[in-house]
């Protein structure tokens, strides 16, 4: 599947926001611990303070360094017969889900995704579920229509 599609470029913006959330959470931990230290001088809060500071610096940095890697090696391919997903370089994983096995497709978009015009897509089979981090809304809807169409055809054959 080397000819698979990369995710839309805009997904990187969302991953950068993930880094921002991590930074804010770690910062909150650090500030909270600092304030707590003013009242109770407990070793535990020294630990959480340093953990928070380290997290606020190292966490987002790691994510920023990983974003190009994630982006480079995540591919998807939707054909008439199946959906194929590929991710990772150090631990490469390649999954095939035949369209005929797909039970339902879930499209979801939070505020950030809506702003970036992206859809989070979850494909559900009778026993497993597979997530595509973000797709153009048109592609996501096309996939959904394809699966609905196939389900209709299957029903016609059954009767």
């Amino acid at each position: 599947m080397e000819n698979g599609q990369p995710l839309p470029q805009r997904i990187k913006v969302i991953w950068r926001f993930d880094a921002l959330w991590l930074f804010l959470i770690a910062l909150a931990v650090a500030v909270g611990s600092y304030v707590a230290l003013q009242f109770w001088s407990v070793t535990f809060f020294h630990w959480t303070l340093w953990l928070g500071v380290a997290g606020a610096i190292v966490g987002p940095l790691i994510i920023f360094l990983l974003i190009p890697y994630w982006y480079r090696f995540q591919r998807y391919q939707i054909s008439d017969d199946d959906v194929e997903l590929q991710s990772g370089f150090i631990f490469r994983k390649r999954v095939a889900v035949p369209i005929g096995r797909v039970q339902d497709v879930k499209l979801a978009a939070g505020p950030l995704f809506q702003w970036q015009k992206l859809q989070q897509v979850t494909i559900q089979t009778a026993s497993t579920s597979h997530e595509i981090g973000g797709l153009d809304p048109e592609v996501a809807e096309q996939l959904r229509d394809q699966i609905i169409q196939l389900a209709k055809e299957a029903r016609q054959y059954e009767v």
Binding site: F89, V95, T128
Partner: peptide, 25 residues
């Protein structure tokens, strides 16, 4: 088979090996 995955780590590339995972209901 509901879905099928092939996994390979970078170290397995040299020896041309992979893990195979099959999902059933």
């Amino acid at each position: 088979i509901q879905s099928l995955a092939v996994r390979q780590s970078i170290w397995m590339k040299k020896t041309a090996m992979a893990h195979l995972r099959v999902n059933l209901r």
